[in-house]
C-alpha cells in the first residue's frame, strides 16, 4: 500500500519534470530562432525562413549557414556540456558551489591550449585541441583531487574549493607570463579565446566537439542513480553498496572530460556549470535522472541567450555569461548557510 503511494508520488513528479523539460526544450527552439535573426547584420525572421528553405540570396546563405548556425549550435552544445559537468561535480562534491571554472579545470585546459597556440600557428588543428586541453584539465583536476584527498576521509569539499582556487590562481599567473610573450596577432586570438568566445566558429568546431558529447552524455545519464545515492552522504552510500571513492573518481573524470572539451572549443566560459544545475534543481527537484538533462537544457539556454546578447556587440560570450553568472554566484553564497 505504502509502496504504491510512494511510486505514485514519484511518477507524478516525473510527469511534472517531463513537462518542465518539454517547456525548456521549447524555449531552446524559440531562442534558436531568435538567435538566428540577431547579429551585427540582422536577418528578418522571414528572410531566415526563406534562406533555410533554400531560396535566400547568396549573402544571406553565407551568413546563416557558415557563420551564424555553427555558432548557435556550438553555444547550445557548450552550454549543455558545462551544465552537465557542473551538475555532476555538484553531485560528487555535495557542494552547491562546485563548478568547473571555480575548480581550476578551465584554467588548466586554457594553459595547454595557450601553449599550443604560442608554439604553432593561430589556426592549428581543431581536432587536436580537445585532446590537448583534456590533458591540461586532467592534470589540473588530478592535482586538485590529489591535494584535497586525505586517507580515511576521502575528499573534503571545502579543501577542494580552496585548493581549486589556489591552483587556478597559479595557472592564471603562468598564463599571464606566456601571453605577454605572444605577438599581437596571437595575443588577440588568445585573449578573445580565454574570455570565452564562440566567435569565429565554423562547422569544424561542431564536428570536433560532437563526438565527446556523444560519448560522455550517456555515461553521465547512466550514473544518475549513483549520484542520487552519493547525495545521502558517504556512509549511507557505502552502506547501500556503492563503491563511493571509485565511482566518484569515474564521475569526476567524466565531468572533467566534458568541461575540458567544451573549454577547448568554446573558450573558458565560467559559471554555466554553476547556474545551470541550480536553475534545474529549482525546477525539477534533486533526482539526478531528471536533474541531469534539465541541467544540460538550462546550461544550453544560458549560453545561447548570452551569445545572442553578445553577438551584436562583438564581445566574447564568456564575458556576458560572467556578468550574469557572478552576481548569481554571490547571491547563492549569501543564501547558503555553511
Amino acid at each position: 500500500m505504502k509502496s504504491t503511494a510512494f511510486s505514485h508520488a514519484e511518477r507524478s513528479r516525473g510527469i511534472r519534470a517531463a513537462r518542465i523539460m518539454g517547456i525548456m526544450l521549447l524555449l531552446v527552439v524559440v531562442l534558436f530562432m531568435i538567435s538566428m535573426n540577431t547579429g551585427v547584420i540582422r536577418l528578418a525572421p522571414l528572410d531566415v525562413l526563406r534562406t533555410l528553405s533554400g531560396s535566400g540570396s547568396d549573402n544571406q546563405e553565407l551568413i546563416l549557414f557558415q557563420f551564424r548556425l555553427p555558432r548557435i549550435v556550438m553555444s547550445l552544445l557548450i552550454g549543455a556540456g558545462f551544465g552537465l559537468s557542473g551538475c555532476m561535480l555538484q553531485g560528487i562534491t555535495r557542494n552547491a558551489l562546485a563548478e568547473p571554472g571555480i575548480l581550476g579545470i578551465n584554467a588548466g585546459a586554457g594553459l595547454v591550449v595557450l601553449l599550443y597556440v604560442s608554439s604553432h600557428a593561430v589556426n592549428g588543428s581543431v581536432f587536436l585541441l580537445p585532446v590537448l586541453s583534456l590533458l591540461g584539465a586532467g592534470a589540473a583536476a588530478a592535482l586538485i583531487y590529489g591535494l584535497s584527498y586525505r586517507r580515511h576521509q576521502g575528499v573534503s569539499t571545502i579543501r577542494m574549493l580552496l585548493v581549486g582556487i589556489a591552483i587556478a590562481a597559479g595557472i592564471n599567473a603562468l598564463t599571464l607570463v606566456l601571453t605577454l610573450k605572444l605577438n599581437p596577432e596571437q595575443f588577440t586570438y588568445v585573449q578573445t579565446w580565454l574570455a570565452g568566445s564562440i566567435m569565429g566558429t565554423d562547422w569544424r568546431f561542431v564536428t570536433a566537439l560532437l563526438p565527446w558529447l556523444v560519448v560522455l552524455l550517456p555515461v553521465a545519464f547512466a550514473k544518475a542513480r549513483i549520484l542520487d545515492v552519493m547525495n545521502l552522504g558517504d556512509f549511507t552510500a557505502t552502506g547501500l553498496g556503492s563503491a563511493v571513492q571509485r565511482e566518484r573518481l569515474y564521475l569526476f573524470a567524466a565531468a572533467v572530460g566534458l568541461a575540458a572539451s567544451c573549454t577547448a572549443l568554446g573558450g573558458s566560459i565560467g559559471f554555466v556549470g554553476l547556474i545551470g544545475p541550480h536553475l534545474a534543481r529549482r525546477l525539477v527537484g534533486p533526482q539526478h535522472r531528471q536533474l541531469l538533462p534539465a541541467s544540460a537544457l538550462a546550461g544550453a539556454l544560458l549560453v545561447m541567450a548570452a551569445d545572442t546578447i553578445a553577438r551584436p556587440f562583438d564581445v566574447p560570450t564568456g564575458i556576458v555569461v560572467a556578468v550574469i553568472g557572478a552576481p548569481y554566484f554571490l547571491y547563492l553564497l549569501a543564501k547558503s548557510r555553511n
Binding site: A195, F271, I319, A322, V323, A326, L333
Partner: peptide, 11 residues
C-alpha cells in the same frame, strides 16, 4: 567570484 566578474568586464 567578484574577481571573475570584474576581470570579465575588464577583458
Amino acid at each position: 567570484a567578484t574577481s571573475a566578474l570584474l576581470l570579465a568586464i575588464t577583458d
